[in-house]
Simulated assay, not measured.
Amino acid sequence: MLTIQRKHLILSRLATQGQIVARELAEELGTSEDTIRRDLRELAQQGKLQRVHGGALPASAATGDLRVREQVSSQEKQALGRCGAQLIKPGQVVMVDGGTTAIQLARHLPADLRATVITHSPHVAVELAAHPHVDIIVLGGRLFRHSMVNVGASVIEAASRYRADLFFLGVTGVHPEAGLSTGDAEEADVKRALHARAAETIVLSSSEKLLSASAFVIAPMNALSLLVVPDDTPAKTIKALRAGGATVQKASA
C-alpha cells in the first residue's frame, strides 16, 4: 500500500472508530510499526491527528484563534452559554475561563444576578460589564493573543488568593481516555491553577471538541463535576464520555 493510501486509511479509521493503535494497524496491513508511526508523526505535524502512546486520536478542530472559533458551532455555543448561566446561583464566586463559549455564558447571565466573577479573559470581563450587580475581578498577566486571555506566573499567583464555587473551564479536547486538553502549554498551566481553586469545575463543550484531543492535558475526565454537551450529541458519544468518568448533561437548543 502506498503512503498516501495508508494515510487516507488512518484518517478514515479515526473518523469512524475514534482511535488508531499502531501495532494493530501494522499487523493488518502487513507493514512495520515504525512505518505506521512515521505516518502518524507526519499527519500530526499537519494537524490532522493527535499522537498518543501506542497510536493516535482525532485532533481537535477547535484550535483556531478566537476570531476563527467564533464562526464554529455558534448556535451550539449560544445554547451552552445559556445552560451554563443557569447553573450560577446568586452570591456565588465563579471563575470563568476564556473562549467563545465563555463569552456566550457572560452574555446570558440574568441582568439582576448578584455574584462575583473572576476571569483572566479581557473579552469576558467586557461582556460582564453590562451586568451592574456582578463584581468583576480580572487576573492580569501576559496577553496570549491566540485565545485573548492573560497567562503566566502572575495569573497563577493571583488565582491562589481566591476560592471559587464554580469554574467554567474552556478546553479544545474532551476525550474519555485522553481527558481534558488544550493546545498551548502555558494556557494549560493557568487552567490547571484555576481548576485547583474551585469547588466544582464545569465544561461547556461544543461538538467539535468531543472525542478529540489536544497536546496539553489539563485534567482527567473524572475531575469534572459536570460536562454540558449540545442537545443533539449522539447517544454513543455520551455513553463513551460517561464511561470515561464524566457526568454529562445536554444543553437544550
Score class of each variant (00 low, 15 high):
203 V>N: 10
157 E>N: 12
176 P>Q: 03
246 A>S: 07
26 A>P: 06
27 E>R: 08
97 D>K: 07
1 M>K: 11
88 I>N: 00
5 Q>S: 07
6 R>Q: 11
17 Q>S: 15
245 G>M: 03
6 R>C: 02
186 E>D: 13
152 G>A: 12
253 A>M: 05
86 Q>V: 08
117 V>T: 13
132 P>T: 13
237 T>M: 01
34 D>I: 15
127 E>T: 03
250 K>W: 08
238 I>H: 00
2 L>F: 10
238 I>N: 00
252 S>Y: 01
9 L>K: 12
158 A>H: 10
141 G>W: 05
162 Y>K: 05
51 R>K: 10
76 E>I: 10
82 R>H: 14
144 F>W: 03
202 I>G: 02
197 R>K: 14
58 P>M: 05
4 I>K: 04
216 F>C: 03
210 L>S: 00
212 S>F: 00
5 Q>H: 10
66 L>A: 13
93 V>F: 07
239 K>M: 07
146 H>S: 11
126 V>Y: 11
169 L>Y: 09
225 S>K: 07
87 L>T: 12
107 R>W: 10
231 D>V: 14
211 L>T: 02
217 V>R: 00
92 Q>N: 12
103 I>V: 14
145 R>L: 00
51 R>W: 09
97 D>E: 08
196 A>L: 08
205 S>Y: 00
60 S>F: 05
64 G>F: 01
23 R>M: 15
58 P>V: 12
117 V>F: 01
124 V>S: 02
224 L>F: 06
45 Q>I: 11
149 V>N: 05
111 A>R: 14
150 N>Q: 10
38 R>P: 00
55 G>K: 04
34 D>P: 09
189 D>R: 07
200 E>N: 10
152 G>M: 04
39 D>R: 05
157 E>D: 15
197 R>V: 06
54 G>W: 09
183 G>H: 08
227 L>R: 00
33 E>C: 11
104 Q>K: 15
183 G>S: 08
14 L>I: 09
150 N>W: 08
193 A>C: 02
39 D>Y: 06
94 V>P: 06
182 T>L: 12
199 A>N: 13
32 S>E: 04
134 V>I: 15
144 F>S: 06
110 P>G: 01
141 G>L: 12
86 Q>D: 09
30 G>D: 12
124 V>R: 00
229 V>H: 07
148 M>K: 06
152 G>K: 02
23 R>L: 15
220 P>K: 04
159 A>Q: 03
47 G>A: 06
197 R>D: 08
208 E>I: 15
18 G>W: 05
63 T>K: 02
